[in-house]
Simulated scan of single mutants.
Amino acid sequence: MIRPVLTEVGIFLIPFALYALFLVATRSGLMLQASWPVHVIARLVLGSLLLVVVSFILLAHFSGAPPNSTYIPAHIENGKFVPGVEK
């Protein structure tokens, strides 16, 4: 469960990292408060949320079992564990 959460956090941080790289490239002062005005932070947050929502939609669309497939749950056969499968 930690991997999907860290993936989404990483996706959320992408616009902030790109803006920080832009500040470094333009030598504008990465740590100066004037380089991080509220309207820029608000746009970065909105862009980040949009990226996260798009990633959730793509994850739901392209992952999982195909439509009309049947899930066979994990079970024991002849004393051996058989993991669940999609058919």
Rank of each mutant, 00 (worst) to 15 (best):
Gly84Ser: 12
Leu49Pro: 00
Glu77Ile: 01
His75Glu: 07
Ser48Gly: 04
Val54Trp: 11
Thr70Met: 06
Leu44Phe: 03
Leu59Gly: 13
Leu58Arg: 11
Leu50Thr: 01
Tyr71Met: 12
Asn78Met: 06
Ser63Pro: 06
Ala60Asn: 15
Ala74Glu: 15
His75Val: 07
Val53Trp: 09
Val54Met: 14
Ser55His: 10
Asn68Ala: 07
Ser69Lys: 02
Val45Cys: 00
Leu51Glu: 06
Val82His: 01
Arg43Ile: 15
Glu77Arg: 06
Ile72Thr: 14
Pro73Lys: 00
Asn78Tyr: 03
Pro83Ile: 06
Val82Asp: 03
Gly64Asn: 10
Arg43Thr: 15
Pro67Lys: 15
Val54Lys: 09
Phe56Met: 14
His61Ile: 06
Thr70Asn: 13
Phe81Tyr: 15
Phe62Thr: 12
Asn78Pro: 00
Phe81Met: 14
Tyr71Thr: 14
Ile57His: 08
Ile72Phe: 06
Asn68Tyr: 06
Val53Glu: 11
Leu51Phe: 09
Pro83Gln: 10
Ser69Thr: 08
Leu50Cys: 04
Phe62His: 05
Leu49Lys: 00
Ile72Gly: 01
Ser69Tyr: 07
Phe81Gly: 14
Leu44Ile: 05
Pro83Leu: 03
Tyr71Asp: 11
Ser63Trp: 11
Ser69Trp: 05
Val82Gln: 01
Phe56His: 15
Phe56Ala: 14
Asn78Arg: 06
Arg43Val: 15
Phe81Asn: 15
Asn78Phe: 00
